[in-house]
Nucleic acid binder design. Structure first.
Lengths: 306, 306
DNA sequence: GTCACATTTGAAAGATATTTTCAGGGGGGT
DNA sequence: ACCCCCCTGAAAATATCTTTCAAATGTGAC
């Protein structure tokens, strides 16, 4: 047990996960020259070495396969194959570690990969914020109103109009009578028809979009239950809303208009409403959901279905 | 470039690091039964599988070595060896990183607070998967095509129609000529007008929505650049797409229809396209962006606007 | 300075693991 | 019920990894 380093480590160390760099430093002194070259390469560029075969690494370091294997053994692995796996793991960890560079604003010269990462991160953040800030009592009340509604009118303009359409589509699919209005005049004309047992929903990020507030006011005054989905719960729209659902406001930048995160936020709220209503009306919703799915099936060409 | 998934991925995607779970879900539908077993094992226990040899994994899944290799290829790796390395990386990331907060399906009797939490979590997951699985090379090419386009036509039906409208709205706002078509017949009628320098975009989660594929085919045959945003890159729609942008597929349940996560995924892709184009055309886009913002200001009642 | 010994090193043989080939079998369509 | 196509796994072919062994190199003693 004198000079054989291999024996010192025998049996004790399960292959090292991330302690590899440290182990290299620890053991370097006890290594022969060519082994040190290998260890150095491995510690210096785990990702690159993980991509190499024994022969490749041997050539890169100007040594032989045997030396590479000996080095792997010395580091505590049964063979080169296992060292390679550990190397891949290490590389992945290192890479994921330096991820949080994405918090910065999107710049004009950002490579496309950064844009993807930053957008995804921002939207995830928006979702978390929205979920955290959503008042479940208000949400529950809104769901109740919707579940028993005779008719549902939804008002939204611009980007919010699409969110309204999304909600209307979903509610229709579970058998409710919902309509999304894009045109402010038609919206008001229709709002006049509403009465108790009906529900009106206004979607406006700013909380002060006149074209959306007006129809909600009319609905409110005619006795319908009213819901506001807005990022400004203190805005004018709230005057006429029985239930206020707050969406989150994320910082915006030139290349990332507010419309993006408000849309994400609004959609989450809308999904929550939908699922809540679907739960409440499960008896009728379940068959309706599968029915609409079946009806669409023939619209898809058979190929690629398996 | 028809139905061969291998070719679709050839050359473009360097083996995925953390996108693996997402990729498994994306490609699972196009897999054969035994391949699915392998993919399932791999996605379910990356660490465990990384420790296995081809033969071991074949035995574990009750299949043959050949099938394991085939699965690895389908997932975008040159062979099993490389899949194994990626697996080791994934395992390392998982272990070092986050708690794998398991999300149960949304149940009928879930309290509303749980619904909010689960939906938010699922959508965050969808975003992460989409970002990880998005091919930035394809994305860059698509952005290039859009940035120089004379005219842009967008096809989407049902839920995807809203995504198309969202994209059209955004592109219009930075001075591009974009139109989202909801009606299949009008879409085809318009597609005939397209020629080189024009871009056609088809949005379909299933990749096999005839009403969307047809106009894309027409556009393709008239020499327009074509982009497909789909969850099934091996689907029929890809035949006529110069650039394929893959959206992620999340598991769905009765109360959480696939439409929800596919919409989230599609919107992220669309946002990436938009920001990419805005970067590329910054000179004209920047003034256009602020101009449209100013134009809207008077539509908001003064109170609560700041 | 030279010899003897111990140690390191790489070439090549040997053992595993991976990939490819190919023929039999099962499922879906007509 | 039949046929065709495509999936599937056994086995051959190849690549990769491991071991062996002899030559080369360095080290210390005389």
């Amino acid at each position: 047990m004198t000079s054989n380093v291999k024996e010192i480590f025998a049996g004790d160390a399960p292959p090292a996960p991330a302690a590899l760099a440290a182990k290299v430093r620890t053991l370097a002194p006890s290594m022969t020259r060519s082994m040190q070259r290998v260890a150095e390469a491995v510690a210096g560029d785990p990702a690159g070495c993980a991509a190499l075969t024994v022969t490749g690494l041997a050539e890169l370091t100007g040594t032989s396969e045997a030396t590479v294997v000996r080095t792997a053994r010395l580091l505590g692995y049964p063979g080169y194959r296992d060292l390679r796996l550990a190397l891949a793991g290490l590389a992945a960890q290192q890479q994921s570690g330096r991820a949080p560079a994405v918090t910065a604003d999107i710049a004009v010269d950002d490579p496309i990969a950064d844009v993807v990462a930053k957008l995804a991160y921002d939207e995830q953040q928006t979702l978390a914020d929205t979920a955290a800030g959503l008042d479940t009592v208000q949400l529950g009340a809104a769901v109740n109103a919707l579940a028993g509604a005779r008719r549902i009118d939804i008002y939204g303009i611009g980007a919010s109009s699409l969110v309204g359409q999304d909600l209307a589509q979903k509610l229709l699919r579970i058998g409710l009578i919902a309509h999304a209005h894009g045109d402010p005049h038609l919206a008001i004309t229709n709002a006049v028809q509403l009465r108790a047992k009906d529900v009106a929903i206004a979607i406006t990020h700013s909380g002060s979009t006149g074209d959306v507030i007006e129809p909600l006011r009319v609905a409110f005054e005619h006795g319908a239950a009213t819901i506001a989905i807005t990022g400004r719960p203190d805005g004018p729209v709230s005057q006429y809303a029985d239930h206020i659902l707050t969406t989150s406001t994320a910082r915006e930048s030139e290349l990332r208009p507010a419309a993006m995160s408000s849309r994400t936020s609004q959609l989450l709220v809308v999904d929550c409403l939908f699922v809540g209503v679907a739960q409440r009306t499960y008896e009728t919703a379940a068959p309706a959901l599968s029915a609409s799915y079946e009806a669409l099936a023939h619209r898809h060409t058979p190929r690629g279905s398996r």
